[in-house]
Amino acid sequence: MIIPKTREQIELMRESAQIVSKTLGMLAKEVKPGVTTLHLDKLAEEFIRDHGAHPGFLGMYDFPNSLCMSPNAQVVHGIPNEKPLVEGDIISIDCGALKNGFYGDHAYTFAVGEIAPETKKLLEVTKESLYVGIREFKAGNRVGDVGYAIQKFTEDHGYGVVRELVGHGLGAKMHEDPEMPNYGRKGRGKKFVEGMVVAIEPMTNLGTRRIKQLPDGWTILTADNKPSAHFEHDVALIDGKPELLSTFSYIYEALGIESNEEDEFRAKTYD
């Protein structure tokens, strides 16, 4: 059952989402060769708590850490560890925060130093596919419209779209209805309603769409061990249009990147 949010609840969710955004912005300065994912996880937990929130992933379904840290061929749900990042890696950082009874949850895939051109293109296309999907999250459309748009865009570039893992509704629970696949058929699935909030999160593989799981019960890998990228935003349906609750602007500020990619989805400027 889809649970629409009031404007007041959406503002509380925006606050949670922005804490995640700021956490990812803080981490952007720390992602570099020689740093361990466990170190980054500890920095994130402290930062989230210092902002009056609880790490949203910590203990959820018995997950042991505050961040899902998935390098290279890991798609999602990687567990932070003591292995240092090296030049040429990519690292997907998925972060959640719980404040005022509502969750924020979004992700960004970072380059560690200079990366291979084909991997850089994978990141660019996956991030663009996120906005392609968000544009279809509007009054009158359905879940399949978002999934179809993401799938077509990424497959037209020759990439594999993961089927087994999907985006989701967001609210007082981390995972609410509806599921938001990154594939689908136009006009199919649940209809979008005013006030709903979803996490849209393309997961795109350089090679096959197929995946496998490590014995740890969490880490998901590409079946061919080629790189995978993951980008995620929290989006509310307000006045029939998609509005971002999360932002990559703190990441871009930290990395010295100029971008206007979010302008069409933002209602106001954040401090």
Rank of each mutant, 00 (worst) to 15 (best):
T126N: 14
K191N: 00
P33R: 00
T208I: 08
E201L: 03
P178I: 05
E118C: 02
G240E: 02
L214Q: 11
D89E: 09
C95T: 14
L165V: 07
K152Q: 13
G256W: 14
N141V: 01
G56T: 10
A139T: 02
K241V: 04
D156S: 14
I48F: 07
G147E: 06
I220R: 03
G113A: 12
N141W: 01
I10K: 03
H106I: 06
K120W: 09
G169C: 07
F153Y: 15
K42P: 00
Y250A: 06
H157R: 04
P227V: 08
Y61H: 13
G113W: 12
Q9K: 08
E15V: 05
P33N: 01
F153V: 00
R210K: 09
F47Q: 02
T126H: 10
G133H: 10
V146Q: 01
H51C: 06
N141L: 02
Y183S: 09
Y270A: 13
K83Q: 15
S259R: 06
P64H: 12
P181W: 06
T219G: 11
N65V: 13
A17K: 00
Y250I: 01
I115H: 09
K138T: 14
L214T: 10
V125P: 10
M1K: 02
K121M: 13
S246P: 08
E232S: 13
V31F: 02
N100F: 08
A53R: 04
G158L: 03
C95V: 15
R188F: 08
H54T: 15
G189H: 03
T269N: 14
G101W: 11
A223R: 02
K42V: 06
S70A: 14
V146W: 01
I251R: 02
K212Q: 09
L130A: 13
D105R: 00
A254Y: 11
E232D: 11
N182Q: 13
